[in-house]
Design a protein around this nucleic acid. Sequence first.
DNA 1: CGTATAATTCAACGATCATTGAACTATATT
DNA 2: AATATAGTTCAATGATCGTTGAATTATACG
Lengths: 122, 122
Amino acid sequence: MDNQVKQVATISEMANLLKILSEPNRLGILEKIMDGVQCNCELGDALQIAPNLISHHLSVLRDAGLIETERDPLDARWVYYSININKLEELRMVCNEFFDPKRVKPRMIACGPSFSKKLIKN
Amino acid sequence: MDNQVKQVATISEMANLLKILSEPNRLGILEKIMDGVQCNCELGDALQIAPNLISHHLSVLRDAGLIETERDPLDARWVYYSININKLEELRMVCNEFFDPKRVKPRMIACGPSFSKKLIKN
DNA sequence: CGTATAATTCAACGATCATTGAACTATATT
DNA sequence: AATATAGTTCAATGATCGTTGAATTATACG
């Protein structure tokens, strides 16, 4: 029961993370930041997205903990976005575990004709 | 250019796969099938989802190539769903590569005060 | 202070998609 | 043939969310 409750939380947490990354523009932004720290206009130029939309997507990524922000020391109008390496590694590990083919188990009959046949046999 | 075109396709392909898996009920169904081959009603019982909704989600997973179907040899009304191991492994590898912290590179200045300062210097 | 710039926030709109309820298809039994 | 069962498909509805356009905030410069 306790194990089951924990599992349910993992599904929705994971689904949430996958949803955040499933938006093509947002995924593209994340990938661009992996190429190196970026500011809003660099991302916009590279991906042909308006500044306000870039801001919106960056906000979602930041709230998810995947990126971090820092203002330029010379001119605070410039905000730089970088990858949160720890969170990225965590994400990678979660995917590694969840999509591990070793998790795949054989059938445990709970219904169907074989189930009925089994009942009759017992 | 050719490399860039290829990269764009990868982003949308990956985003599409992530979107498929980002729906909690669908992710839960996939996970349940990993526990062993399932039929529609076993999945419905386990996850408290109506048969038609189960069918819908299974259809999406099948179209994505993540699961495979087989009818019961004794009674064709029963349809069993199993994981496509190869596709699962492929998914895992794609995540491994995309979310690899080793991909993260340092900043290449393309704009901002440091960029202006650099221009003035040259 | 007025103007410019980088970025952010806000709210409305339209597109997408999960869910619902009904209908349908295929198989099996009497 | 009638009835039951497992599963699928269809279409409408409502919820979610990306995008758009406008407004705002903060910073910088002359």
